[in-house]
Design a protein around this nucleic acid. Structure first.
Lengths: 202, 202
DNA sequence: ATTATTTGCTAAACTATGTTCAGTAAATAA
DNA sequence: TTATTTACTGAACATAGTTTAGCAAATAAT
């Protein structure tokens, strides 16, 4: 009988309901509105029910974070149509930073907040995030191979470039540069990319 | 009569008691142990009393953060004895990152957490942090003036260098690079500084 | 068809947090 | 000696995440 299959399917549908309710709240009202009770309201079940489908809140945030990584990956797909590795590298940086500034709270959840990391399945099953990172790494490697970046270690260069971008956007997102008004963030990022790549890329 | 003076002094002493209790808890048991009730226990007063000396918890965290900035500034003092701007720049980076890795939670409070920023007196009275930043900026300016860094805008270069360092340490502190074990953080940072300065500094 | 069991769900409670407020007792002023 | 101000606190409020005991309906067994 296909009973257990149906049960399995219903369980997945419920998880999906919870996740999309969480996402709706997150998008519409921000991170602080994503509470177990609000999610429960949204799906018209009791708070305790949520715990029958997700171990804890951090697991929900982890699943939510994953949707963010998927969206970022999706945006990175255009890179495959850019032949020159330097152009590809520049485009990577722009896509990354644009994503961060356009989805500040999601970026925060993905790269800054502690909570979702407490629920990572395992240190290795970090697949969604790793995919984007390996894409960047291969772009940098292409730059090195093409003689556009000179370094003995492409992995270090990759990490440095990521760190630079993450550094800038996280300073803005967590408001550590109050001297710079928000409407200039995008411009400053462009200038920083310009400066850095001018020195790194030949 | 010096009565109001005494009152004023006692008020300051009480604020100091609360702050040092908070700091003690922070150092000994970590951020999560810094609760109003634990602070109250520590100073042997009731939780409500704490609110007679600090507006809210964020104000206490803000004051705590300030002690961190003072310590960082203190560590930066050795820079004045380094004549060559490039050496000074390298030393700045090392001091900054060493501080971050040796005082992860304090760094977190200073540069990552939202809470203490909610209690900033004003956007301008950011004096403690700005002092360190201006020091870095003048070092970078010296590098530019000496022809060691080529850029049309020393301010952008300064911001980029800070962002790079902040990026790396905050990735580590918030555990976004699980592929890199903690005992290699310091080594990776050295390599990144090496790579970046090799390209930026002549 | 009836009984037993499992499943899905929930009301209520528990713990912990930041925070407020009414009231008390001591210090000060009148 | 009385009035007032000051310093403090107990108790409560609101909001979290989370757990547990139990109920009712769906399913399985007899």
């Amino acid at each position: 009988m296909g009973l257990s299959e149906r049960k399995e399917r219903e369980k997945l549908e419920m998880r999906e309901m919870i996740l999309s309710a969480a996402k709706r709240l997150f998008i519409r009202e921000g991170f602080d509105s994503v509470t177990i009770r609000r999610i429960a309201d949204e799906i018209e079940y009791s708070p305790a029910t949520v715990y029958l489908y997700y171990k804890d809140k951090d697991s929900i945030l982890c699943a939510l974070q994953e949707t963010g990584f998927r969206e970022l990956s999706r945006r990175m797909e255009v890179l495959s149509s850019i032949a020159h590795p330097v152009d590809r590298l520049k485009a990577s940086g722009k896509i990354y930073c644009d994503f961060a500034l356009e989805n500040r709270e999601m970026y925060d959840l993905m790269f800054i907040m502690r909570a979702p990391m407490n629920a990572l399945p395992s240190p290795e099953e970090w697949t969604v995030g790793r995919h984007s990172y390996e894409l960047l790494q291969s772009t940098v490697q292409d730059c090195v191979d093409g003689g556009h970046i000179s370094t003995p270690d492409a992995k270090i260069a990759t990490f440095a470039l990521w760190a630079l971008m993450h550094g800038v956007v996280s300073i803005f997102i967590r408001e550590r540069a109050p001297m710079i008004p928000a409407d200039q963030h995008s411009r400053i990022i462009s200038k920083i990319m310009e400066f850095s790549l001018a020195n790194v890329v030949k």
